[in-house]
Simulated scan of single mutants.
Amino acid sequence: MTQNIPPQAVFFDVDDTLYDHLIPFRKALQNILHTNTDFPYEHAYHRMRYFSDTLSAQAGGTPTHGRVLEDMRRNRFILSLSEFGLSLTPDQAQKVQDDYLGNQFAIELFDGAEGLIHELMSRGTVVGLITNGPPEHQFQKIKALGVNHVISPDRIFISGAVGITKPDRGLFDHVTESLGLTSTGCYYIGDSWRNDVVGAISAGWNVLWFNHRGVQPESEHQPHHVVTSYNDIAEVLLELFVD
């Protein structure tokens, strides 16, 4: 990656990148399944995300509505939690999903996220979002975080609205083409190895892997930077503006 060339654009993932996605997951398990403090929430969360991605890929991309979406959401909990000794019926899985969904709108930005977005924009950088999911659902989370008041709608790209799902490089190509950007001038910050690292690298973008949970790489792809906090992210990006 070329150093000291300010980024043309910086895009963020949403789930577990702008906010702590583990919080609504933990609350749902505690509220519905009455799991205790010793339950391995973080490990179970990673398995739920794995099955969510796997089932979505099997469905041809992130489902956005109807029976396919409902089945995927239930089955990801049934499959992931079975690995931790919790056998859920479809009805139980639906109750967990419903509680999980409700908790996703009581969320807050990670410390440092909003300040970094404002700082990048003040330096003339295009700032936007790229996220997988049904349009209405994802935008409700974006509104809950208040980011819609900072980032203009034409710079928010939701897979269900575009019709292309990460890690398909086509979603990233769509962003550059829509906004008249170059891939070499675009930076992407995301937590998911499969969706964010693989997808953005495949499109020729510069990638900051937000590995704040300390997980292992899943392939031979090489992110340009590995960061674990918004202080790290700010340090990497703002240094590029130094002459």
Results as ranks from 00 to 15, higher is better:
R123F: 09
Y100C: 07
R73G: 00
R213Y: 12
E114D: 10
R49A: 09
I158R: 01
L129Q: 02
V197D: 01
Q140P: 01
Q138L: 11
V242Y: 07
G185V: 13
K95R: 15
Q58F: 12
G115H: 08
S56N: 10
Q30D: 09
G170P: 00
H65K: 13
A200F: 04
N132F: 06
L181F: 10
S80P: 07
S159H: 06
L86V: 15
G214H: 07
D173V: 10
V10N: 01
F77Y: 14
L101P: 00
Q138N: 05
G115C: 05
I32T: 14
N4S: 14
A57Q: 13
R73T: 11
V150R: 05
F139N: 13
K143M: 12
T184S: 15
Q30H: 10
V242L: 11
R76V: 07
N231P: 00
M72K: 13
G124E: 06
R123P: 06
L18N: 00
Q138V: 11
E235N: 14
D232Q: 06
S80L: 05
S80M: 03
Q92G: 02
N4R: 14
L22C: 10
P90Q: 05
P153I: 10
G133T: 04
D91Q: 14
H174V: 09
G190D: 02
T17G: 01
P90R: 02
G180A: 10
P153E: 11
V226N: 03
V236K: 11
H212M: 05
V96G: 01
Q58I: 10
G170D: 04
F157A: 07
Q138F: 11
V215I: 15
G170T: 08
F51C: 03
V126T: 15
V147E: 01
H43Y: 10
L179T: 08
H174I: 09
D13Q: 04
I130Y: 01
R73C: 13
A113N: 01
A44W: 00
